[in-house]
Amino acid sequence: MIPPPDFSEGAMLKFVRTRAVASLISLVGLLVMVFFLSRLTGDPAALFLPVEASAEMKEQFRELHGLNDPLLVQFTRYAGDVVTGDFGESLRKARPALDVVLEAFVWTLWLAVITMTLVAGAAIVVGSLAAFRTGGFFDRLSSVISLIGASVPDFWIAIVAIVVFSVNLAWLPTSGTGSLLHWVLPIAVLFIRPFGIIVQVVRGAMIGALSSAYVKTARAKGVKSGPIIFVHALRNAMLPVITVLGDQAASLLNGAVIVETIFGFPGVGKLMIDSILQRDFNVVLAAILVTALAIFLMNLLIDLAYALLDPRIRH
């Protein structure tokens, strides 16, 4: 029933190209910022080396990493290394920093993708039904979850969930990884806040779409309620929803620091916190750039989704 998106006349290609270039410029900007943050906030040798390092060690470190060269030369070298995927060694793990980060990032990525897929699917269905019958069951359900998500801190939910489901009921493992069951609690806890936000956006946008003139036309054509909600109104209501969906996904990609820490989940958020505490700066820098790249890619996907959903944006 729903027609396939139309990639007509290369309009799409041009759109993607301009957005990609814009994203690339932002990425370069971020690279500059990250570099200068690590160079301008003090002596890098002092930042990178452990506190107890001696003056000779620091001098040696500077010599080794070319920290005595002019800043611009250093930046060129750093940017060159980054482009070839070389972020230096993790000082604690004696492995390439990028490897350490990517390993953790895969965990976070899965966590984010699964959570956001569930959130999007549930929020769209519940939000649409809430809009169709305001004040009905789905409307009240979504209000309650939104209220919980907005007002209860997630570390508290996480701890209560562990107490109830892992300790008392012993249905689920308390923390760590190893089985599918280990994923249930982190996903469930991460689900609540973005669901609460997105379901309200869906509801609002759908109320607008359902009272629109084109829905009146569809009713005059004799179209059934199902297709009116999920074919006519929903696609029009998706634009604001996708924006918020992107925001929420980005905050999960950044690493759900608290939830990952509580559940001992080896994601990039936990890695970042550990690395900062251990002064493992190469890992921190690599983690920042990797998550940034992921977020830029995701924004590109969102722009693409806009264009797919709304022909007026394509042209």
Binding site: D6, Y214, T217, R219, G222, N236, L309, P311
Partner: peptide, 21 residues
């Protein structure tokens, strides 16, 4: 609706769904 009785409206731009051909 649509089969026996059909309707057209004042402002056709807003009465056509913008995202479908």
């Amino acid at each position: 609706n649509g089969r026996r009785v059909a309707m057209i409206f004042q402002d056709p731009l807003s009465h056509l769904n913008p995202v479908y051909t």
